[in-house]
Structure formats: structure tokens, C-alpha cells
């Protein structure tokens, strides 16, 4: 780790001010950033710790929306009765991130802003058609994710809340990478109130999280495992590493989608 200034504001405007400085970097739960700093792979001059800002934390239901503060931990989401009642798939997802220590530190805002291609939350945000609210604007999930570790967030922009439309049914089917236990290929499946089906895929794509339109259309007209069989999932565009070839990941997209359908049937 290199030396840096540490700033822990208690309100959002102070945090935003601090983030305007040269070399300033927001720190959420630190579950990615701290290991990166320890390996000296990043050298921010100032870390702006967002965990002291109470207004970023909390879960509330607002009509047909579930709103989760950007600073809410995975542990809080996993334990929330409101989330379980509204979007059980999010409880499944949050409860399978890392271990208890990670879940008690890591935040939903941090996960979305980092957009690790193997992170879990981006799949849910895409599949549920979430709206990501920042201190400046609201961004649709479909516009938010811009490839590996890239988002449409601008300098000094902080995720304040994530608005999830409440689906009629949802599930997260995670297939873990054997070492990191991140997603090797995982599926967030949501049946929306308008009858549409949305499929978010994380861990598989060479460009990060994506929705699979072929699967969405097939399941939208026939919500059954056999409908998945008829869909072609291409290996092209899938990532390749020690733990999964593109062909293997393409296979997992179908297998895990089928399991998601079965879980909701």
C-alpha cells in the first residue's frame, strides 16, 4: 500500500466535495479496493470512505419498487425480510457473495460501481431492470454497464441507491469458480409484472455482464426448461481462463438458466 489521505465524511455532499480532488477515490466496503491497494496496483492520493454516510444505507419498499441504499452491505440485504418478501432472488444472491466477513463489509453500490465481470449484483441489476441513482442522476441498468470494470459513472459520481422493480418471481443460480468462489457463470432470472422474462448473465461474458435476448424471448413465450433447450447460446464472446472455456461457459448459461426456470416452476 502507498500512503494516502483518509477522509471519512458523514454526509454525502462532503463526500462529493472530497471526491473532486485530484487522485481521490471512493471507498465502499473495500472488498476489492483494499486488496488492490495492498498489492500497490492503485495509488489514490485520497480515499473517501463512504461508510460513515448513514443516508446511503437502508432498504425500503416504495410501492412497486424496492430501494436499497448504495452503502447497504450484502449481509443486510441477505438478512432483510423486506427483500425476501419482494425479491427473494436478491436474498439468494447476497447470501452467496464471499463469506460472512465479506458480506458484512461489501456494499451493493461498491459492487455495481466496480462492475467486476464475475460479480453477482450486476446480473440482478440487469435482469430486474434496476435504476441506479447517483448524487447527480438516475441511470437505467441497461445503460449502466459498459464492459469489464467500466460503467457510465463519471468522476465524483456516487451510487446513492438502487431502485429494483419488484418482479413476480426471481431467482439467482450461481455456479462458483472453484478458487475465488466468484461467479464462473451465474444467472439471475426475473419474471416481470408485464409478463416479460429477463435473464442476466454474469461471469461468462468476455465483456462482462449481459442479458441473453434469445433466452428471454424463448422463456417469455414458454416459461419451461424445454424452451431453453431450443435456444442457441454461442461460445463466441464468452471469456476463457483456467476455470472455463468459452464452450463450457456457454453450456453453463443454458444449464443454469434451466435450473433457474426449474427453481421457479
Amino acid at each position: 500500500m502507498y500512503n494516502f489521505e483518509f477522509n471519512r465524511p458523514t454526509d454525502l455532499s462532503a463526500a462529493v466535495d472530497a471526491l473532486r480532488g485530484d487522485g481521490a477515490q471512493a471507498l465502499g466496503g473495500g472488498q476489492t479496493l483494499i486488496p488492490v491497494l495492498k498489492q500497490r496496483l492503485a495509488a489514490p492520493t485520497t480515499l473517501v470512505d463512504l461508510t460513515g454516510i448513514e443516508s446511503l444505507k437502508g432498504i425500503r419498499r416504495m410501492g412497486d419498487m424496492l430501494v436499497i441504499g448504495g452503502g447497504t452491505t450484502h449481509g443486510a440485504v441477505a438478512a432483510s425480510g423486506d427483500v425476501a418478501a419482494a425479491i427473494p432472488g436478491l436474498v439468494e444472491l447476497a447470501s452467496k457473495i464471499g463469506d460472512p466477513q465479506v458480506r458484512n463489509r461489501g456494499t451493493i453500490g461498491g459492487s455495481l460501481a466496480n462492475n467486476d465481470p464475475a460479480a453477482c449484483y450486476p446480473a440482478a441489476a440487469l435482469a430486474l431492470g434496476a435504476t441506479i441513482e447517483t448524487n447527480q442522476r438516475k441511470i437505467e441498468a441497461d445503460d449502466f454497464f459498459q464492459g469489464l470494470y467500466a460503467t457510465s459513472l463519471e468522476e465524483g459520481e456516487v451510487i446513492t441507491a438502487v431502485h429494483f422493480p419488484i418482479p413476480t418471481a426471481s431467482t439467482y443460480q450461481k455456479f462458483e469458480q472453484p478458487a475465488s468462489r466468484f461467479s464462473l457463470t451465474s444467472i439471475f432470472l426475473a419474471k416481470m409484472s408485464d409478463g416479460s422474462v429477463r435473464v442476466g448473465v454474469t461471469g461468462a461474458g468476455a465483456d462482462g455482464v449481459f442479458r441473453h435476448e434469445g433466452l428471454e424471448q424463448a422463456l417469455g413465450s414458454n416459461f419451461s426448461a424445454s424452451a431453453v433447450d431450443g435456444v442457441s447460446v454461442a461460445a463466441e464472446g464468452m471469456s476463457n481462463d483456467l476455470h472455463g472455456t468459452p464452450e463450457y461457459r456457454a453450456n453453463l448459461v443454458k444449464v443454469m438458466t434451466k435450473r433457474a426456470v426449474e427453481a421457479l416452476s
Binding site: A179, S180, R181, L242
Partner: peptide
């Protein structure tokens, strides 16, 4: 060493 950290070297849990 491709599996040079616990991100890629799988330890039994």
C-alpha cells in the same frame, strides 16, 4: 504462475 493467488489457486473449504 497463472494460479498465483487464491483468486485462481483453489484451496479446499
Amino acid at each position: 504462475l497463472v494460479a498465483g493467488s487464491y483468486m485462481d489457486y483453489a484451496m479446499p473449504l
